[in-house]
Amino acid sequence: MSRHIDHEAEATDRVMFGFWVYLMTDLLMFAILFAVYAVLHGNTLGGETGRDLFSLPLALQETLLLLTSSFTCGIAMIAARQRKKAQTLLWFGITFALGLAFLGLELYEFAEFIHEGHTMQTNAFLSSFFVLVGTHGLHITSGLLWMGVTLIYVMKRGLNDHLVRKLAMLSLFWHFLDIVWIFIFTTVYLRAFV
């Protein structure tokens, strides 16, 4: 029996490590998008620049939402490790809501731009903006999807080792997305006003 636990623990250790390496590959994918944005963000063809388009308060709101969700996600993980099901569901629920709010704000911002005629076909600056921020948004969406599905399974099966491992991976992913957002906030939004 002790051997079995050993085997499980080793598997968890491996999976967490593999997931960490995956996160690194994802970071490198973002690196390309950041590089493209850094090179192309001036190519507006005389159109509106980031300074004319972006709203700093909105970006700050998004940042705070995501940062708080990263924090609540951490608290949720503490509860999950102690196998406190109700608390886990509550805190992940809050995380989910915050993430959804973040996504809502981002979509609102995109919709505004597109409504004003600033689409990603307009120029290279907007292409790289939409793709960089949009890719982050897609990651958030998949994180929310994953959170939703895992939570449904938690409700059905309770907090077993397998699901806690899934949640641990999810929380890594979520913290990681917040770190990527710090750089989007800085190099896309704040930088436009420098």
Partner: peptide
Amino acid sequence: MSRSSVHSPHG
């Protein structure tokens, strides 16, 4: 981070 995040007997 790794093993501790799921298994270790956290006090």
